[in-house]
Design a protein around this nucleic acid. Structure first.
Length: 665
RNA sequence: ACGCCCGUAGCUCAGCAGGAUAGAGCGGCGGUUUCCUAAACCGCAGGUCAGAGGUUCGAGUCCUCUCGGGCGUACCA
């Protein structure tokens, strides 16, 4: 039962009956204990609007409403608050009832059941997942779990970056790896990367050109020797696939090498000649050229690009799966799918055609653009959304538009597609403008019908203690794998000191659940909108508002039940509330559904963390002041019931955040 | 330059359509263990809610301006 919603409905009705218009009563948990359990805040503003005395209106509402089954006498206080104290009978009966509903703890399902797509995680191809992917993965997973819990049909979409412009760089990187092997010069990439890095740091243009020219000449020579890939690149790919001899660890430096070469080559005028058609491509743009070929991959002549792509995709996928497995974010499920950008590749040209047909397309500097009405500054200057580059290539925006059509079901008939009422995009807040633009185009083009809710769920950046984006000591990105290793290792250290006598296997299991839980919870407990400062100490201090604090509270509860060797909870449904600590705990327990509902409404998982922390606090206070096993019946059974209800709520609540509990720690 | 976001205790953060005396954790100080897990609990100290105006019964929350920080703004994702 959602008490707050119930109170709000009845009081709002009473308000209009008392002549207070159809305004919401606005019920909130009370600010202080002496004001009861809930307070009504909405009376004053309505009274002001109607120019009547707020206390008189409050009196009328109190007279009109019937809360006899929920609350003790209502009290009008201060300028016009109504204070509500829940009946102990209600608390007792509600907790008893929730004990009979093991799965759902009496949390009501959402009023209207929707189909909701959650777009999250979305790592890039051929790069190892790093801390930047953590937030999207964890927040998206938590939101999906919560929405699912409330009865919605949740479809998870992992929009893997496997098709964008950067992918040309990956293939080009593979090509460089191939060439250094052919030339038997295994240090080539590493050597040149270092020398380029060195000259890029200084401000010496001549030196830079010199280093760049060396690479340029080598690249031109290699290309001349194997212009269609038949001599070297094809056989290389074949071998690599057969022997699985290329790893992400090889691929990353090659990718970085290409990146650096191209960024330094910008504006130098260095040209690579491609023999077949005497195509001349700027050194700085070779990878875009490769991308273009990839995007026309269904032409047989581009099959080497296609093959390289497939292989890199496979590599990434394996590595990502390891992470997802460790994080407990499962992928393969009826409603959980990896569906990368490439899946939309055949619809991209159709997107352009349809925009053209709606007369939304405009060519500007050679690129195909849409200019949504929404984006005009004061001078009427318009902001473009580029959907096709001047070289004909497609972009993130194009893919996202195609993805929207697939998700809401506005593709041409016959195509398999989803029919979402709501789509959540869990991405970095820096993409806010991008999504506003995409949503605007989708609405104007009719790709997303009016009723569909497109929502960007942005989150801030993880910072180091100097308030800079979180990096390794060397300045690189922190690999997610390393982060998780470290978390588990540190948690194991703690288990060893705190519970040295447990069997080794169990210690490892606890370390895993506590370590991973700590990482996830630390992230989820922050308001996702703001940047937050990452700290090993804070996360694994295992104090305060952390996963281990909650897990510890749970373990203590389990310990009680181990002592009495009982799993028959039906004995404990006779709840008697007498002690203030019991009452505070009971009220908190009842508010679980409010917290879950709030997370679903606002897409803010930290609200649930805050709730669980309060609950664990209420429990430990209870635990300190109210003996359970040593008290007499019927108090003993009642307190066992409260313990069981708390344990289930913590387990279920942490479960909704994707965090596991342990029986002992 | 324009746009979006942010500024709350020494540090890290909450503060839910404006509500009663702004809350936690860490750190600091002081206490609690013959008692169900001390990874715990209880108490104390610590605030001009960046600053200045305004709206009103009432502002950390809404509006305007100033200062400070972050991010974004045409072929990256």
């Amino acid at each position: 039962m959602n008490i707050r919603r119930e109170l709000e409905q009845r009081l709002s009705a009473a308000m209009s009956e008392a002549g207070g218009q159809d305004a919401p009563a606005i019920v909130a948990p009370s600010a202080r204990p002496q004001f009861g359990d809930y307070q009504v805040n909405g009376v004053m503003s309505v009274a002001k609007r109607l120019k009547i005395n707020p206390r008189e209106l409050a009196d009328k509402i109190v007279a009109a409403v019937d809360l006899s089954d929920i609350a003790e006498n209502l009290e009008v206080a201060g300028p016009g608050f109504i204070n509500i104290t829940l009946k102990n009978d209600l608390l007792q009966q509600q907790i008893a009832e929730s004990l009979t509903d093991e799965e759902h703890l009496s949390v009501p399902l959402a009023a209207s059941q929707q189909t909701i797509v959650v777009d999250y995680s979305a790592p890039n191809l051929a790069k190892e997942m790093h801390v930047g992917h953590l937030r999207s993965t964890i927040i998206g997973d938590a939101l999906a779990r919560v929405l699912d819990f409330l009865g919605h049909t949740v479809i998870r979409q992992n929009h893997v970056g496997d098709w964008g412009t950067q992918f040309g760089k990956v293939i080009l990187g593979m090509w460089h790896l191939c060439m250094e092997k052919v030339r038997n010069d295994p240090e080539y990439i590493e050597r040149n990367y270092e020398s380029l890095k060195a000259v890029s740091a200084e401000d010496d243009v001549a030196k830079r050109k010199e280093a760049l020219l060396l690479i340029h000449n080598q690249q031109q020579e290699d290309l001349n020797n194997d212009w269609d890939g038949e001599n070297a690149f094809h056989p290389y790919l074949k071998e690599v696939v057969r022997n699985k001899s290329l790893t992400l660890i090889d691929l990353l430096p090659a990718y970085q090498f290409v990146n650096l070469v191209e960024s330094l080559a910008k504006g130098t005028g260095l040209i690579i000649d491609s023999p077949p058609k005497h195509k001349r491509v700027e050194l700085a743009k070779v990878s875009s050229y490769v991308t273009k070929m990839l995007q026309e991959t269904d032409k047989p002549k581009n099959r080497q690009e296609f093959k390289g792509w497939c292989y890199a995709k496979l590599l990434t996928r394996h590595k990502c799966d390891e992470i997802y497995y460790r994080l407990g974010v499962p992928l393969e499920h009826k409603y959980r799918r990896t569906r990368g950008e490439s899946k939309y590749r055949k619809q991209l040209s159709k997107v352009i055609e349809d925009l053209e047909a709606k007369r939304l397309l405009e060519k500007s500097d050679g690129a195909q653009c849409v200019f949504p009405d929404e984006f005009k500054n004061k001078d009427g200057e318009r902001l473009p959304v580029i959907v096709q580059k001047s070289d004909g290539g497609y972009l993130y925006a194009t893919t996202d538009l195609a993805a929207i059509r697939y998700r809401v079901g506005t593709l041409p008939e016959g195509e398999k597609q989803l029919h979402a009422d709501r789509i959540l995009y869990v991405t970095d807040s820096r993409q806010a403008l991008h999504f506003r633009q995409i949503f605007a185009v989708a609405k104007e083009a009719g790709f997303a019908p009016e009723g569909v809710s497109l929502e960007h769920v942005p989150f801030g950046t993880m910072m180091d203690k100097n308030n800079r984006p979180f990096k390794t000591r060397e300045g690189g990105t922190v690999k997610l794998m390393d982060l998780l290793d470290s978390a588990e290792r540190q948690a194991l250290g703690l288990v060893n000191t705190k519970s040295p006598n447990l069997p080794e296997e169990q210690k490892l299991d606890i370390a895993k659940k506590v370590g991973i839980g700590a990482v996830k919870y630390f992230d989820l407990a922050h308001n996702r909108a703001s940047d937050y400062v990452f700290s090993w100490d804070k996360m694994l201090a295992l104090d305060g508002n952390t996963a281990p604090y909650m897990q510890y509270a749970y373990a203590r509860i389990r310990s009680i039940f181990r002592k009495i060797k009982s799993t028959n909870y039906t004995n404990f449904t006779n709840i008697l509330i007498t002690d203030p600590a019991e009452r505070a705990l009971a009220v908190k327990l009842l508010q679980f559904s409010e917290a879950v509902q709030a997370v679903a409404d606002e897409s803010l998982p930290h609200l649930l963390c805050g709730y669980l922390f309060d609950l664990a606090g209420a429990f430990t206070t209870f635990y300190e002041s109210c003996p359970v096993l040593k008290s007499d019946e019927p108090t003993r059974s009642s307190r066992l019931g409260l313990c069981e209800a708390t344990g289930r709520t913590i387990r279920t609540g942490l479960g909704l955040l994707g965090i596991e509990t342990v029986e002992q720690m």
